Amino acid sequence: MTPPPRVLSIAGSDSGGGAGIQADIKTITMLGGYAMTAITALTAQNTCGVTMVEAASPAMVAAQIDACTGDLGVDAVKIGMLGSPEIAAVVAERLERLAVPVVFDPVMIATSGATLADNATIAAFERLMRIATLTTPNVSELAALGGEAALRARGIAWLGKGGDAQGPDVTDRLAVPGEDDVVWTAPRIVTRHTHGTGCTLSSAIATHLARGLTLADAVGEARQFVRAALLAAPGFGAGHGPLGHCAVR
C-alpha cells in the first residue's frame, strides 16, 4: 500500500473551523494526504469576524516544524497566516533546509475584513516568496506585494486569484518565470459561504504537488475542489460561512 503524501500546514488556528489550520486539515485529508501542523497563532473568530489574535512564539513554531519534519517527514508545505515578522523569519529559515514543494498563501486580510498581517510581517514575505514553489495572492494581496509586474521582475511564481474581483466570471492566472501564463476562467458561484477559500485552495495545491502533479495540474485540480466545496457549503453562520469540505465527493 502506498503511504499518503505528507503535507505540513504552517498557519493560524480558526476557532470557527472554516479557515486556517482547520480548513487545511480537512482539505488535505479529503484529498488523500496526511496532514501535519505548525500553529502560528490562535484566533477567536467565527463567520462574522475575528475578535482576538494571539501569536505563538517563534521558538514554538520552529519546534513544531522540527517535530514534524524530523520524525514523520514531509512531502510538501503550505504556509498561511504567520502572525509576526519573527515567525516569518524562523519559518523561512526552517524551509530553506527542505527540498520539497512550498505553497505560500500570503494571508493579510480575513474574508471578514480583519487584518491578519502588519506591515513588518508583509515586508518579511519577500524571503518566503523566493523559497516558495508558488505564492497565491488574491487581488488586494497581489497589489500589496507590488503587482504583477513587480512579481514577474523578481522571478516569483504566483497564482493571481480572481475570486474577490468583480464580474460574473472568476479568472485565476498562473505565472511561472520562463513559461507562458496559464489562465482559468469559470462562472462565479454566488454565495456568502466563502470563508476559507484561499486556505483551502493553497492546501489543495500543496497536497497535489506532494502527490507528484505538475504545478499547472495541481492548481487545476485544486480549483475544482474549491468550487465543489463552495457548492457543498453547509450554510452555517450569519456571515461568511464555511465551505463544505467533507461533503465533496
Score class of each variant (00 low, 15 high):
15 S>Q: 07
15 S>H: 04
16 G>Q: 03
17 G>Y: 02
18 G>C: 02
20 G>V: 03
20 G>I: 08
21 I>F: 06
23 A>C: 09
24 D>H: 12
25 I>K: 04
26 K>I: 07
27 T>W: 07
36 M>L: 08
37 T>W: 05
38 A>V: 08
38 A>I: 11
41 A>Q: 05
41 A>T: 13
49 G>C: 13
51 T>W: 03
52 M>H: 15
52 M>Y: 13
53 V>F: 05
54 E>A: 15
55 A>N: 12
57 S>Q: 12
58 P>R: 11
60 M>K: 06
61 V>C: 10
61 V>S: 04
61 V>D: 07
61 V>K: 08
62 A>V: 02
64 Q>V: 00
65 I>W: 02
66 D>F: 00
66 D>G: 05
68 C>Q: 11
69 T>R: 00
70 G>L: 07
74 V>W: 10
75 D>C: 04
77 V>H: 11
80 G>M: 01
81 M>H: 04
85 P>A: 05
86 E>Y: 07
89 A>L: 08
90 V>E: 14
91 V>F: 12
93 E>K: 13
94 R>D: 07
95 L>S: 11
97 R>Q: 13
98 L>T: 05
104 F>T: 06
105 D>S: 11
110 A>V: 02
111 T>G: 01
114 A>V: 00
116 L>W: 09
119 N>C: 00
120 A>P: 01
124 A>W: 04
127 R>N: 13
127 R>Y: 00
128 L>S: 11
140 S>A: 13
141 E>P: 09
143 A>R: 10
143 A>M: 10
143 A>V: 11
144 A>Y: 03
146 G>Q: 14
147 G>Q: 12
150 A>R: 08
151 L>I: 11
154 R>T: 01
156 I>F: 11
159 L>V: 00
160 G>A: 15
162 G>I: 06
163 G>Y: 00
163 G>S: 02
164 D>A: 11
166 Q>C: 04
167 G>R: 06
167 G>C: 09
167 G>M: 10
169 D>S: 07
174 L>V: 02
174 L>P: 07
174 L>M: 03
175 A>W: 04
177 P>D: 09
179 E>T: 01
179 E>A: 13
182 V>Y: 04
182 V>M: 00
183 V>D: 02
184 W>H: 08
184 W>V: 03
186 A>V: 01
186 A>E: 15
190 V>I: 13
190 V>G: 00
192 R>G: 14
194 T>W: 02
197 T>Q: 08
198 G>F: 10
198 G>V: 05
200 T>G: 03
205 I>V: 15
205 I>W: 08
207 T>V: 03
209 L>H: 10
213 L>G: 00
214 T>Y: 01
216 A>E: 15
220 G>I: 00
222 A>T: 02
222 A>G: 05
223 R>W: 03
230 L>P: 05
235 G>F: 12
236 F>K: 10
240 H>R: 07
243 L>T: 10
248 V>C: 09
